[in-house]
């Protein structure tokens, strides 16, 4: 097939909502876009383990500790599924990790905020995983096969993440005045950074147009953000917590809430490395990588020694 026929074939598959698979021809920019998006997603899962891992040893009960441990382990698994999907596009695991560890790659801005109290574990599960799920449910129908399949798996596993977070919040909100204040404080700090997770408004999002054209994304940042707000407000009301947004108001005509604008200047600062915890997060990843070096070396030495014995 010549170049035009290959391109027509690709467009045709997209039009018919067929998945693009690793060995199929694809435009270079489609490949590049996917490598960037999937690897950022993978890095976010991996770095996302840090703010929560921080609380495992301080969980208030054995039940909460087991749950948090299982959740954090799941996030590590999500990182692996996504690295695998990115590797099918022709980039190595070594290169992907190098991009993260050298500070070249981005990951979700939300993980550069600190986790100051136990209630933050509730806010993260409820809001941050909730927002991630909204995005990931859409991505189950993304046009690149390996990415879509990773998302199906991830969505299945995510379902308990949000519930455990909401459970933490509702128990605190029904507790002593101090506990309720702790829950409200966590909501106050995580609300706006969570809304930023969906990315800038579509009008200002450089990558959105191609992503929609190639059916990598099926919905816009603003659509997903609106749906998240609509879904979350009643959940907050039910447990007696207040969303920290003076502009929040039900809009009968659009059957949804009107809400305030996140501080996009803060968002830009955080994704460009100036958030409260950027250095700490990357430092922790680098330390983990360096600390694991002897294990990788030992495993490689053991494998080659056994090969020699067998030969």
């Amino acid at each position: 097939m010549d170049a035009t026929a290959l391109a027509a074939n690709f467009e045709n598959k997209l039009a018919k909502n067929e998945n693009i698979e690793p060995k199929d021809w694809m435009p270079d920019n489609y490949r590049k876009h996917l490598i960037r998006q999937i690897s950022q997603h993978a890095h976010s899962e991996v770095v996302g383990m840090l703010p929560e891992g921080n609380w495992i040893t301080r969980a208030p009960s054995l039940r909460r500790k087991m749950v948090l441990l299982a959740k954090v382990q799941d996030e590590g698994g999500h990182g692996l599924y996504l690295y695998s999907a990115a590797e099918t596009l022709g980039i190595s695991r070594e290169e992907l990790l190098h991009q993260l560890l050298s500070g070249k790659a981005k990951y979700s801005s939300i993980f550069n905020y600190p986790t100051l109290s136990w209630a933050d574990m509730g806010a993260i599960g409820w809001l941050v995983d909730g927002a991630a799920i909204m995005n990931q449910v859409m991505l189950q129908r993304t046009s690149y096969g390996p990415y879509a399949r990773a998302m199906v798996r991830i969505c299945k596993e995510e379902s308990f993440h949000q519930r455990q977070g909401y459970e933490i919040m509702s128990v605190l909100a029904a507790g002593s005045p101090e506990q309720k204040a702790m829950a409200q404080d966590a909501l106050n700090r995580f609300w706006w950074p969570t809304l930023m997770m969906f990315g800038p408004s579509d009008a200002n999002s450089a990558n959105s147009e191609n992503a929609i054209k190639w059916k990598i994304k099926r919905e816009s940042n603003d659509q997903l953000r609106q749906r998240f707000v609509n879904q979350t407000i009643p959940q907050a009301e039910l447990i007696g917590l207040t969303i920290p947004d003076a502009q929040l108001k039900w809009n009968e005509a659009k059957q949804g809430y009107d809400f305030g604008e996140p501080d996009w200047e803060e968002f830009n600062q955080v994704i460009h490395g100036n958030g409260p915890c950027n250095k700490e997060r990357l430092g922790a990843r680098l330390k983990a990588h360096d600390d694991g070096k002897w294990v990788r070396e030992a495993a490689a030495a053991y494998a080659s020694k056994r090969k020699l014995v067998a030969a």
């Binding site: 990790l97 560890l101 050298s102 680098l286 990588h289 070096k293 990788r296 495993a299 490689a300």
Partner: peptide, 12 residues
Amino acid sequence: MENTKDSQGLVW
């Protein structure tokens, strides 16, 4: 920073 590109092993 140590070498961040050391081997991650084969793919299985």
